[in-house]
Deep mutational scan, measured.
Amino acid sequence: MPEGSASLQLAVGDRVVYPNQGVCRVSAIDVKEVAGQKLTFVTMRREEDGAVVMVPEGKVLAIGVRKVASAE
């Protein structure tokens, strides 16, 4: 991610809310080559049905992904 860009610090195992998809758990953060460029992807699995969603790390905030609020 370019320096100075806002990002959401995620780790494998974090629970997040993905708008219009529901609650997901981060299952992987991997670098993949797409069209000759190396990009970091956040892979999330929906808790409702296990569907897998992959989002480029740089788009996580723009999409509206946020961490699940704690009970505290």
Score class of each variant (00 low, 15 high):
1 M>S: 13
1 M>T: 12
1 M>R: 13
1 M>D: 12
1 M>A: 12
1 M>N: 13
2 P>V: 12
2 P>Q: 12
2 P>H: 13
2 P>Y: 07
2 P>G: 11
2 P>A: 12
2 P>L: 11
2 P>N: 12
3 E>S: 11
3 E>C: 04
3 E>Q: 11
4 G>F: 09
4 G>T: 12
4 G>E: 12
4 G>K: 12
5 S>W: 09
5 S>F: 11
5 S>Y: 10
5 S>K: 12
6 A>I: 13
6 A>W: 08
6 A>Q: 13
6 A>M: 12
7 S>R: 13
7 S>V: 12
7 S>Q: 12
7 S>Y: 10
7 S>E: 10
7 S>A: 12
7 S>P: 12
8 L>A: 08
8 L>Y: 08
8 L>H: 10
8 L>S: 09
8 L>F: 09
8 L>R: 09
8 L>C: 01
9 Q>W: 07
9 Q>Y: 09
9 Q>D: 09
9 Q>I: 10
9 Q>K: 13
10 L>W: 04
10 L>E: 01
10 L>Y: 04
10 L>V: 07
10 L>I: 08
10 L>P: 02
10 L>H: 01
11 A>C: 03
11 A>G: 05
11 A>R: 14
12 V>S: 02
12 V>Y: 01
12 V>T: 03
12 V>R: 01
12 V>K: 02
12 V>A: 02
12 V>E: 03
12 V>H: 00
12 V>P: 04
13 G>E: 01
13 G>S: 01
13 G>R: 01
14 D>V: 03
14 D>W: 01
14 D>H: 02
14 D>F: 01
14 D>E: 03
15 R>D: 02
15 R>E: 05
16 V>S: 00
16 V>Q: 00
16 V>I: 13
16 V>F: 07
16 V>L: 09
16 V>R: 00
17 V>D: 09
17 V>G: 02
17 V>Q: 07
17 V>F: 15
18 Y>F: 14
18 Y>A: 05
18 Y>V: 15
18 Y>N: 02
18 Y>S: 05
19 P>R: 05
19 P>G: 12
19 P>E: 08
19 P>Q: 06
19 P>Y: 07
19 P>F: 07
20 N>A: 08
20 N>D: 10
20 N>I: 04
20 N>E: 10
20 N>W: 05
21 Q>P: 01
21 Q>E: 09
22 G>L: 04
22 G>I: 04
22 G>F: 03
22 G>N: 03
23 V>H: 04
23 V>E: 04
23 V>S: 03
23 V>L: 11
24 C>P: 00
24 C>I: 01
24 C>W: 15
24 C>H: 08
24 C>G: 02
25 R>P: 01
25 R>L: 13
26 V>L: 01
26 V>W: 00
26 V>E: 00
26 V>P: 00
26 V>T: 00
26 V>R: 00
27 S>L: 15
27 S>D: 12
27 S>K: 06
27 S>T: 15
27 S>A: 10
27 S>W: 13
28 A>E: 06
28 A>R: 10
28 A>Y: 05
28 A>F: 05
29 I>Y: 02
29 I>G: 00
30 D>I: 14
30 D>S: 13
30 D>Y: 13
30 D>E: 14
30 D>M: 10
30 D>G: 10
30 D>T: 14
30 D>V: 14
31 V>Y: 08
31 V>R: 05
31 V>I: 12
31 V>F: 07
31 V>G: 01
31 V>S: 06
31 V>M: 07
31 V>H: 06
32 K>A: 07
32 K>T: 07
32 K>P: 01
32 K>Y: 15
32 K>I: 15
32 K>E: 05
32 K>F: 15
33 E>R: 06
33 E>C: 05
33 E>I: 14
34 V>I: 11
34 V>G: 03
34 V>Y: 07
35 A>E: 12
35 A>W: 08
35 A>N: 15
36 G>E: 03
36 G>R: 02
36 G>C: 00
36 G>N: 05
37 Q>I: 15
37 Q>L: 10
37 Q>C: 01
37 Q>G: 08
37 Q>D: 06
37 Q>P: 01
38 K>C: 02
38 K>Y: 12
39 L>E: 09
39 L>T: 09
39 L>M: 13
39 L>I: 15
40 T>R: 14
40 T>P: 03
40 T>G: 04
40 T>D: 01
40 T>N: 06
40 T>V: 14
41 F>W: 14
41 F>P: 00
42 V>C: 00
42 V>L: 07
42 V>E: 00
42 V>N: 00
42 V>F: 06
42 V>T: 00
43 T>Q: 05
43 T>L: 06
43 T>R: 04
43 T>I: 14
43 T>E: 08
44 M>W: 01
44 M>T: 01
44 M>K: 00
44 M>Q: 00
44 M>I: 06
44 M>R: 00
44 M>E: 00
44 M>C: 05
44 M>L: 14
44 M>S: 00
44 M>D: 01
45 R>P: 01
45 R>C: 03
45 R>M: 14
45 R>F: 13
45 R>Q: 14
45 R>D: 04
45 R>G: 02
45 R>L: 15
46 R>D: 03
46 R>C: 15
46 R>Y: 03
46 R>G: 04
46 R>A: 05
46 R>I: 03
46 R>L: 03
46 R>N: 06
47 E>P: 01
47 E>T: 03
48 E>R: 12
48 E>Q: 10
48 E>A: 13
48 E>P: 04
48 E>W: 14
49 D>Q: 01
49 D>Y: 02
49 D>V: 02
49 D>W: 03
49 D>T: 04
50 G>Y: 03
50 G>M: 03
50 G>I: 02
51 A>S: 09
51 A>Q: 10
51 A>Y: 11
51 A>R: 11
51 A>K: 12
52 V>W: 06
52 V>G: 03
52 V>A: 06
53 V>K: 03
54 M>V: 15
54 M>C: 04
54 M>W: 06
54 M>S: 10
54 M>D: 04
54 M>P: 02
54 M>T: 14
55 V>W: 05
55 V>T: 03
55 V>H: 04
55 V>E: 06
55 V>K: 02
55 V>C: 05
56 P>H: 07
56 P>F: 09
56 P>A: 12
56 P>V: 13
56 P>L: 12
56 P>D: 09
56 P>Q: 11
56 P>C: 07
57 E>V: 14
57 E>L: 15
57 E>G: 13
58 G>V: 10
58 G>L: 11
58 G>R: 09
58 G>N: 15
58 G>A: 14
59 K>C: 15
59 K>V: 14
59 K>L: 15
60 V>N: 04
60 V>I: 15
60 V>C: 05
60 V>L: 15
61 L>R: 14
61 L>W: 07
61 L>K: 14
62 A>R: 07
62 A>E: 15
62 A>G: 10
63 I>H: 11
63 I>Y: 06
63 I>M: 12
63 I>Q: 11
64 G>K: 06
64 G>H: 08
64 G>D: 07
64 G>N: 07
65 V>M: 09
65 V>Y: 03
65 V>F: 04
65 V>W: 03
66 R>W: 05
66 R>S: 10
66 R>V: 15
66 R>L: 13
67 K>Y: 08
67 K>C: 09
67 K>Q: 08
67 K>F: 08
67 K>E: 06
68 V>E: 07
68 V>M: 10
68 V>C: 08
68 V>L: 14
68 V>Q: 06
68 V>D: 06
68 V>H: 07
69 A>P: 11
69 A>L: 08
70 S>K: 10
70 S>Y: 10
70 S>W: 10
70 S>F: 10
70 S>I: 11
70 S>E: 14
71 A>M: 12
71 A>P: 12
71 A>D: 13
71 A>F: 10
71 A>Y: 09
72 E>Y: 07
72 E>S: 12
72 E>K: 09
